[in-house]
Design a binder for these strands. Sequence first.
DNA 1: ACCTGAACACCGTTCAAGT
DNA 2: ACCTGAACACCGTTCAAGT
Lengths: 212, 212
Amino acid sequence: MASGPGERRGAGEAGGAGARRTPGQRAGLTREAVLAGARAALAQDGIEGLSMRRLARRLGVAPNALYSHVADRDDLVDALLDDTLNEVRAPDPRRGDWRAGIETIMRRTYAVLLAHPDLVPLYVARRGARGPRAVALGEAMLAMLARGGIEGDPAVEATRTLIVHAIGFAAFATGAPLQPAESTLTPKALQDLFARSLSWLLDGIAGGHPMR
Amino acid sequence: MASGPGERRGAGEAGGAGARRTPGQRAGLTREAVLAGARAALAQDGIEGLSMRRLARRLGVAPNALYSHVADRDDLVDALLDDTLNEVRAPDPRRGDWRAGIETIMRRTYAVLLAHPDLVPLYVARRGARGPRAVALGEAMLAMLARGGIEGDPAVEATRTLIVHAIGFAAFATGAPLQPAESTLTPKALQDLFARSLSWLLDGIAGGHPMR
DNA sequence: ACCTGAACACCGTTCAAGT
DNA sequence: ACCTGAACACCGTTCAAGT
């Protein structure tokens, strides 16, 4: 981790307290390095590690140095969320059964969310991602729905329903159980439940004729 | 608003800066007054008004005075969320069609969530309420499911699915649209969509035979 | 038991420098 | 353009008093 330029100060950089650079000296930071640091902070310290000040400390810069590479904290979080969606491989919207295509895209999205449990509360708080990757996935789903004869408002409603469902389920799967009884549900049971409820919704979206 | 004891200082109480009481003097605060103040703060200033310090300022007390009536901020928020569920009138779990009963309970819950849009992000963040009211509603749903022959893990899965669905939809209905295209969905269209997707899920939960 | 004063250890963000 | 120093306006929470 922390690859890239600006490595000459070596280890111990993140732990110290004093100033190593005078104003005007560069730290060799880039937007990508900031995002990589944010990921590492999230992995190591969880959501609390993702404050601007703690991230700056980890990167060995002054807190306000981050604002040269990121508009504000929301910008940082949005970039993190959208980047993560790069891990979701969407099937070709023009080939195969459209309903199976949507199921694939949603299951992969769900799997990626579960693979990044600390990000899930952020997806929840922002109700999804807004970046180019999220848009691309949304367009793929709309293309698949169109092949099933679903367009316009019903198509928008369908994608919204499915995204809500995936994020909501991920939140429950990664969070602490609400009631003691819920702890009896294993991760596998939850995954099955997601798959099942997903197909229920798709049954309804497809208009009552299940198709498989 | 702000009914109850401790009114003798009158208007202007919340705006001033100086200390009106020396240590040892009481402000006449109660847990209920703190919760009422929290509701008013939420209604007036939104989620940002719900900091301990701002709430204390509104109530005319020192920030730490709140800790005599509330364990911490989470305790305050939890009480707020559970109290609001008092507005959800649950039908008698023993009477009428069980599926219709669940639909009623979920639609009323959804309506109450929409009636308190500022609380929705908090329900989302905490993935529901945990207090006695939430437990009572959950038990009512389990009783209805039992009458439909659904018990044990499947019943817990069903309630979880339905609650995720309601909170997720409320979050999307009350929040800003994620993509420009979504803004075309009117509140009424969203409400219809919730009702429809709810019945899709219930179709699935009921085992594929829609029952109505 | 209920409240204040003061403090601790934080936040995000901005503004004015420096090179 | 990229960074630091310093500051502003906040947070939640705790501890030691006072009555």
